[in-house]
Simulated scan of single mutants.
Amino acid sequence: MERTVVILGGELASEGRLVLEDAGVNVVSTQPYIDRQGVIEVMRVHRPDAVIVRLLADLLGPEEMRAGGQLRHIAKHGVGTNDIDVKAATALGIPVSMTTGSNGHSVAEHALALIMALAKDLPRQDALIRDGIWDKNQYKGRELRGQRLGLVGFGFIGQTLARMAGAIGMIVSAFDPHAPDDAFLDGIIRETDLDTLLASSDVVSLHCPLTPETQNLIDARRMGLMKRGAFLINTARGEVVDEKALVSALEDGHLAGAGLDSFAVEPPGTENPLFQLSNTLVTPHVAGVTLDAKRAVSVMSAENVLAVLNGKTLEPRFLAS
């Protein structure tokens, strides 16, 4: 019996698609940021056994899940399931999987790259030289050694970044009420109060999931607690940060800069005021999609799909709840 898997919102890496095709699966992919009505139509036409979710314009909700009539599994191409109504899927008896650990190292490296680029004043120096200005007196680079990095969220990505930052001499503290005590090794300081972490950090890097509790977690009040001249890094979800408050904090100089890989609305419009500021460094939500990570995520999401379709139970760490 032929089985069909639809990739919603873009294509898999060829290695991931091959995993499915070698197992005899019919694979269908859609364009990135497919909207709700587009998803419903695809589900009705192809009646997939499983879907792999990449980039959606809207939340994948119960109507879309039911539209195909035989959906058995939803696999997220990544670990952030905020674009999937997991509760609705659970109520319909459809397990939702994640590719836990597959791209975490790439995200941690990306966060470190944003930190270093801002600290070393690289975007501004690049712009000056391209404008014909060669003036070393305008360099405002900082040394990261001895600076305090505050991590909000201390799962695999946060822990990986902590080791990298520690290796270059940064002092690292982290806030995560869900992390076990044994995660805080090698001199990592456990901070039990988020406000205290923000107030004491020279760089704040966000690595928490998007939940009702973390929506606009970093708002105007909390930005006001941060040190004047601090940097904010976000490789988590854009909605964790109040973007309007961030623009104000950057415009008045309270924050020296922000490195952002995600935004409240994606893809964001070119009129987004964050793009008009000289002290922002922005990337298009690519921290976890290096060529290496994309291969790993695609293969793992395909393997998760096949495991479920073949009647196997995934390990709890791969399941959203």
Results as ranks from 00 to 15, higher is better:
residue 1 M to W: 06
residue 1 M to E: 06
residue 106 S to D: 05
residue 39 V to K: 00
residue 151 L to V: 07
residue 162 A to H: 11
residue 233 I to M: 05
residue 111 A to L: 08
residue 218 I to R: 11
residue 79 V to E: 04
residue 130 R to N: 00
residue 27 V to F: 04
residue 230 A to G: 11
residue 165 A to Y: 04
residue 34 I to C: 06
residue 82 N to W: 10
residue 84 I to C: 02
residue 136 K to C: 03
residue 253 G to P: 11
residue 198 L to W: 09
residue 166 G to R: 11
residue 53 V to P: 03
residue 227 K to D: 00
residue 315 E to V: 07
residue 5 V to W: 03
residue 44 R to V: 00
residue 290 T to Q: 02
residue 26 N to C: 07
residue 58 D to A: 10
residue 167 A to W: 04
residue 41 E to I: 02
residue 274 L to S: 05
residue 130 R to A: 02
residue 43 M to R: 01
residue 294 K to D: 04
residue 22 D to W: 07
residue 19 V to S: 03
residue 36 R to S: 12
residue 169 G to C: 08
residue 236 A to D: 05
residue 308 V to Y: 08
residue 297 V to A: 01
residue 144 L to G: 11
residue 152 V to R: 05
residue 111 A to C: 10
residue 207 H to S: 07
residue 124 R to H: 13
residue 3 R to W: 01
residue 33 Y to I: 06
residue 215 Q to L: 15
residue 178 H to A: 13
residue 229 G to L: 11
residue 127 A to T: 11
residue 294 K to P: 02
residue 63 E to Q: 09
residue 141 G to S: 05
residue 183 A to C: 11
residue 20 L to A: 04
residue 259 G to M: 05
residue 27 V to A: 04
residue 159 Q to N: 12
residue 250 L to N: 00
residue 243 E to T: 15
residue 19 V to P: 03
residue 220 A to S: 15
residue 73 H to R: 03
residue 296 A to P: 01
residue 256 A to C: 11
residue 307 A to H: 13
residue 193 D to L: 11
residue 218 I to V: 15
residue 217 L to W: 08
residue 134 W to C: 10
residue 106 S to V: 02
residue 300 M to G: 00
residue 48 P to W: 01
residue 164 M to R: 15
residue 42 V to P: 03
residue 248 S to K: 14
residue 23 A to M: 06
residue 233 I to P: 09
residue 116 M to N: 07
residue 169 G to W: 07
residue 23 A to Q: 08
residue 21 E to M: 08
residue 33 Y to H: 14
residue 46 H to I: 01
residue 83 D to M: 14
residue 142 R to S: 13
residue 185 L to E: 09
residue 180 P to M: 04
residue 113 A to F: 12
residue 258 A to R: 00
residue 38 G to T: 05
residue 269 G to W: 04
residue 124 R to M: 11
residue 112 L to Y: 13
residue 223 M to L: 15
residue 167 A to M: 04
residue 274 L to P: 05
residue 5 V to A: 06
residue 254 H to Y: 10
residue 23 A to E: 10
residue 107 V to L: 08
residue 90 T to H: 12
residue 293 A to C: 00
residue 10 G to L: 02
residue 309 L to V: 12
residue 27 V to E: 01
residue 223 M to H: 09
residue 307 A to C: 13
residue 310 N to V: 09
residue 146 G to T: 12
residue 295 R to S: 06
residue 167 A to E: 03
residue 15 E to N: 06
residue 14 S to Q: 12
residue 218 I to K: 11
residue 185 L to N: 09
residue 240 V to K: 01
residue 305 V to E: 02
residue 56 L to R: 09
residue 112 L to E: 07
residue 32 P to H: 05
residue 160 T to D: 14
residue 114 L to H: 15
residue 141 G to K: 09
residue 290 T to C: 05
residue 191 E to Y: 08
residue 210 L to M: 11
residue 67 A to S: 06
residue 198 L to P: 10
residue 191 E to N: 13
residue 32 P to N: 07
residue 7 I to C: 02
residue 136 K to A: 14
residue 208 C to N: 02
residue 134 W to L: 14
residue 166 G to I: 07
residue 17 R to S: 07
residue 90 T to A: 15
residue 175 F to P: 00
residue 30 T to A: 08
residue 9 G to F: 00
residue 237 R to T: 01
residue 231 F to H: 13
residue 18 L to F: 10
residue 249 A to Q: 03
residue 10 G to W: 01
residue 224 G to F: 13
residue 140 K to I: 01
residue 287 A to E: 04
residue 292 D to A: 14
residue 294 K to C: 05
residue 295 R to K: 15
residue 250 L to G: 04
residue 285 H to S: 08
residue 161 L to N: 08
residue 11 E to V: 12
